[in-house]
Amino acid sequence: MELFVQQLVNGLTLGGVYALIALGYTLIYGVLQLLNFAHGEVYMVGAFTGFFVMVGLGGPGKPIVPVWLMIVAMFLAAMVVSGLLGVGIERFAYRPLRESTRIAPLISALGVSLFLQNAVLLLFGSRVRSYDTPRYWSGAGPQVAGVQVNPVRILVLVLAIILMVGLTRLVEKTAFGRGMRAVAYDRDAAVMMGIDVNKVIVLVFFVASALAGAAGVMVGLVFFNVNNYMGFLAGLKGFTAAVVGGIGSIPGAMLGGLLIGLIESFTTAYVSANFASVLSFLVLILVMLLKPRGLLGTRAIVKV
């Protein structure tokens, strides 16, 4: 029972992180029908940004500002840097290809991925860097069903939920959200209404990438280690979550993220860590066979 609660919390935290990454894939796919394979790298850069902000503020040893302020700064900086990176990627690697073949942006995305991984390796080396959260934050967490829960995980989970709610409101209630949905549904008609599609796409990339940046800091806080290869697998998981939930669907991405997170954490605990990824893969295949549009998806993945 104790193990179960522990794994439930772990799974939810992990799921929250995957959901944030998945949301990025889904937003971008929804608007551009583009699988942004470089999204994982954006997340990795977010994790690095958070790390360097922490170091800049004296962490993990002796923070020169209150710890809460440091963490806020880490999140904000990571979101802004990742957001801008996403915008840059769109501008230089995808926009010139908008009228090209469908395969071209995918290849370009692979190129971006490779470039970013190695640029970070060049600039910061292959040394493993650690957030080392316990050195500046070691409070006892709340008790849930008799189990001590790590407060960092609670923070991450709450923050993920806040971001998801915020995003949902942004998409459903604001003018930008309406514009975004209009562009997603019929780009040409949106242009006719005077919507500056490029501006909408830039904003979508910013929001999607900022979410990935936040996810990067979250993973750093919970699992400590960051390196230049961390983006690939996380990106893959987030991507799986997006597809399982139904790509293009925002609640789908959240559901998919939680599902993949829970599957991983329970497989790790009860079966074997080796099978965690394999099982998510099987879930992906299963969903694609039984419900090709994903659990909550409404649109087919390819517009034909």
């Binding site: 893969f281 992906l284 993945i301």
Partner: peptide, 27 residues
């Protein structure tokens, strides 16, 4: 069709590497 294959194969490739890496201690 299109992106489906990309997804499945991407995952397959990664699964292979992971299987090769952790296939020395299968319970």
């Amino acid at each position: 069709l299109g992106d489906y294959l990309a997804i499945v194969t991407l995952f397959f490739g990664q699964m292979f590497v992971e299987f090769a890496l952790s296939g020395d201690a299968i319970t």
